[in-house]
Design a protein around this nucleic acid. Sequence first.
DNA 1: GTCTATAGAGGGATAGAC
DNA 2: GTCTATCCCTCTATAGAC
Lengths: 177, 177
Amino acid sequence: MPRARTTETADRIRAAALELIAVKGVHQVSLREIAERVGVTKPALYYHFASRDDLVRSLVQPFIDEVEAALARFGPGADPRELLGAYFDAAYRHRDVTAMIMRDPSILAMVDLASAVGDWRRRIVTMLTGSDPALADVVRVQMAIGGLGDCTVVLPGAPAAPLREAVLDAACDMLRR
Amino acid sequence: MPRARTTETADRIRAAALELIAVKGVHQVSLREIAERVGVTKPALYYHFASRDDLVRSLVQPFIDEVEAALARFGPGADPRELLGAYFDAAYRHRDVTAMIMRDPSILAMVDLASAVGDWRRRIVTMLTGSDPALADVVRVQMAIGGLGDCTVVLPGAPAAPLREAVLDAACDMLRR
DNA sequence: GTCTATAGAGGGATAGAC
DNA sequence: GTCTATCCCTCTATAGAC
């Protein structure tokens, strides 16, 4: 019962699952549908993934890991543009996963990672405002993070580089007050 | 087979459904759970609501109606603080519903209202930027809307009036560039 | 207006052949 | 590594008594 192997078939299964879930939401997609799109049967999936949850987790994990790694490079008093830029880059690089999560955040609860995302926000707020910040400062950071994530998904047609600059400009303008 | 009646039991069913869905997500809550919390049996729900979808829709509809009514009061060249303030008020007044939607947006697809929400954003962007806006301007409006919705939910402990002012200050600072 | 009972569908997961 | 066949579970929804 190998778990989340990196065989070629496993990759095709992951790709099919990602596409379907991004469109329909996590809980609207059954293993039968995924298997059909790949061109195999349900039990075949269980050769590559220990369970449904195991499959879903393997979709999200690379994104989680990259954000964690990015945040780990910063500490208190970090430069806002660099910190938010690193977060944007991770969200944009995995924007297929980001879109999937934004469409149905319950996927995070499903793989028990909702607390991780909450942590990200709290850590960014702390790094950018210090301890015991005023409500106004917390609001500005929260709006920057929330809006940033939105833009990687709501404006899919926009070219990457200008979008990145526009988002960071707006976020930094808001934070500078 | 009455639909979405306003009897007292129907209200208790709606309240129970809202609480459960806000915590677990739409598709993690069954009619059995809702019925148990209310203290009745499943078939009793079907006396008050034509279907599962009918129940869910009756939860979201008042919020949708209020936002639509708020947006209808504005047109091209609207004052950003007033327009976003009206949107904030609707989101905050129904913040239990807003939280439910943000936790699991697939609820919108479920009741076929995702397009309505997309429309809101487009209409607000158009009213605040005019036609054929630059990417930078669209980004700022999208970030303002997204961040605004986030803050009504991410900062549940904050008192309403100061939160409202802080959010609108931040949004307007960002838009003024 | 609420109950018991049940139909009917579809889901996740496993056994065992090949 | 993939298949056929199957188990067991939970769900939505309905029928019909009270």
